[in-house]
Amino acid sequence: MMRMDSENDGLPQPRTLPSAPPPPLVAPVEPVPALSFRDVSHRYRSHPALDRLTVEILRGQTVALLGPNGAGKSTAIALVLGLISAQEGSVEVLGTDPREAVRQGRVGAMLQTGAGSGLPPNVRVATVLRLVQRLYPSPTPLDETVRSAGIGHLLDRQTDRLSGGQAQLVRFAVAIAGNPELLVLDEPTAAMDVAGQRAFWAMIRQFAQEGRTTVFATHHLREADEIADRVVVVNHGHVVADGPGSSIKAKIAGRRIRFSCSMPDAVLLDSLEGVTDVDLQGTHVWLNSLDSDATVRDLVRHAVQFEDLEVVGPDLQDAYVALTERRPSIERSSTS
C-alpha cells in the first residue's frame, strides 16, 4: 500500500511523471495541458459511466487509457471529442472547449465503431482521404498521410471492400489526415493481426516523435505498457491507477497469491520478495507479486502459517477489480 501511494504522488502534479521514451522533438512550451478532466461524471439515463474522473494529460505525451469492458473509456473519449457534453465537472481540450478544439481542426480521432467500418460506403479510399484533408485548415499532404498509415495499396479500393484490419488502417489515416495536435484512438488495433498491430504501433511512435499528444484506449496491458509514456487505468468510470507502464504492470500484471492465515501480518507480507501489494480481509490474504516463486519461498522462510495457497495468473479483470477496491487509498494520496 505504501508503495502504491508514493507512486501516485505524481497524479496531482503530472509534470513530475517520468516519461520512458525520449522527449518529443518539439517540447511542450505552452503550459496548457492537452487534455484535462476535472471531476467529470456522466450517466446514460440512470446508468453511471464516469464517476468523478479527474485526469490531466500534458502535451507531447502518449497516454494509454487502460480498462476493462464498460470501464468508461469510450465515454471519456466522446467527451474529449465533444460528441457528448459533460453532465458534471469540466473537460478542456488544448486549452479550450472540446467542441471548439474539434472545430478548429486540432483534434484527430479514430472511434470505436463496433461492426461498422467507420467509413462512407461506396466510395474509393483515396476520395475519402481527400475529402477529410479538405475539411481541415492545415492538413498533412496526402502522400505523407498515406505513407504514415501504410495504405498505399488500399487507395483505389472501395471502402466497403476492405477487411476489418484494413478499414482500421484507413480510419487511422482519416484521423491523422488533418495534421492534428491531439490524436485520440479508441481501441485502434481491435481488428488487426499481431503483425498489423506491431506495424500500427510503430506508426504511432513515429507520430508521437513529432511532438503531438496521443491518447488511446485499450484493454491490453502489454499494449499500454509498450507504447505509452503513461498509463491511466480506469474502472467504473474512475481513475484507479496512473503512472508509467512499468509501475502499472507491477501492480496488475503480476501473479496473485491467495491463502488463508489466522493472524496475517501486513507489514511482514508487504516486505516479502516480489510482493507489490497486500490485501487483507479477515483471515483471507491476497498478495500481488511480480515473482510468485520467490514470494512463496519467502513465505516459507518467514514461517507464515498459510493454508489453501493458490497462485493465480495475471487475470486483468481481477486486477482491475483489485485496483478499484483500493480506490479510497488512492484518493487519499492524491488529495494530500
Binding site: L83, G116, L135, G178
Partner: peptide
C-alpha cells in the same frame, strides 16, 4: 450504422 456520420462529427465541419 457504419460510424461515418459519427466520424464526420469529429471533423471541423
Amino acid at each position: 450504422a457504419s460510424g461515418w456520420a459519427r466520424q464526420l462529427r469529429v471533423t471541423p465541419i
